[in-house]
Design a protein around this nucleic acid. Structure first.
Length: 270
DNA sequence: ACGTCCTCCTGTTCGC
DNA sequence: TGCGAACAGGAGGACG
């Protein structure tokens, strides 16, 4: 599911609901959702209060009194604040029960999401976050160019590589390529430094617009019932007709991911 | 180091 | 209609 704008929307929404709440108990209903020892996860966090929620790329970082944990929603992860007594639905795998009688439930149909304890002091520099490249607004064009210009992989695939830049997923990768008028299959090595600079600027602009719209809702994303509106702005992803030339949108698989583009408008290679 | 394939899961849609 | 295959917004690990 969620890419950077959706995760940012979840972060902002969730902050209103959970900051200042004390975790009285944690119930893990599917323990593969926890990276590492789930008993340690539970015993470490129980009794602590949620002080802040940070985000790096597509990871949420919950900051507590003494510790922190990261949560990656992968494809379908969602959070809901409910009454602690509310019945558990079959896709809710973890409950943070708060001392005020509410509970934060983690729900994930495909069970791909993960939660993991991290150090509150050094989490940006430890795994798993230390692997991430910069978000587009922090990215240095020269450094990104160095990571791309020898690769034979399609530029769209490189946009999905979180070690190069972080935050972009399949939807926005398609939209960014469209905005650049670049063919998504263009090998990285054929993209000039000037175009990489442009690519970063376009990425920044599209992610910012999506955040302003509350993210994209396609089928499962929502932040406590709050859904995004950016799907109204999608120009190629899941579309049939090009909004620029009225020609057909092509869908093909590029390295295993559904890729949408306009053959007429996205002829540029590089 | 780099690229490809497979895997983790469940639900929905597509094609015969 | 039925039924299996393909696909869905992600990423980590194994392998060559």
């Amino acid at each position: 599911m969620p890419e950077l704008p959706e995760v940012e929307t979840v972060r902002r929404t969730l902050k209103h609901f959970v900051i200042g709440k004390e975790i009285k108990a944690i119930q893990v209903h599917y323990d593969k959702i926890i990276v590492g020892d789930s008993n340690r996860f539970v015993s470490t966090l129980t009794g602590q209060t949620i002080r802040d929620i940070d985000r790096l790329g597509k990871y949420l970082v919950f900051i507590l009194d003494r510790d922190a944990f990261v949560s990656h929603l992968r494809m379908e992860g969602k959070y809901h604040l409910v009454d602690a007594a509310a019945p558990l639905n079959k896709h809710q795998h973890l409950s943070f029960v708060f001392s005020d009688g509410t509970a934060l439930r983690y729900q994930d149909t495909r069970k791909f999401g993960r939660l993991e304890l991290v150090s509150k002091e050094t989490y940006p520099y430890d795994l798993p976050l230390s692997k991430l490249g910069p978000e587009p607004w922090e990215a240095d064009p020269e450094a990104i160019y160095q990571k791309i210009h020898r690769s034979s992989l399609p530029i769209k695939t490189l946009l999905l590589d979180q070690r190069i830049m972080t935050g972009i997923g399949n939807i926005y990768a398609n939209e960014i390529c469209f905005s650049m008028s670049i063919n998504p299959t263009t090998p990285g090595k054929r993209v000039s430094k000037k175009r990489i600079t442009e690519l970063i600027a376009v990425s920044k602009e599209i992610l910012e617009q999506a955040i302003a719209q509350g993210g994209t809702t396609i089928h499962s994303f929502d932040a406590n019932g709050i859904t995004g509106l950016f799907q109204m702005q999608l120009k190629v992803h899941m579309q049939k007709v090009c909004p620029v030339c009225d020609g057909p949108i092509t869908k093909e698989m590029v390295r295993g991911r559904g890729t949408y583009y306009c053959q007429a408008c996205q002829k540029k290679k590089g």
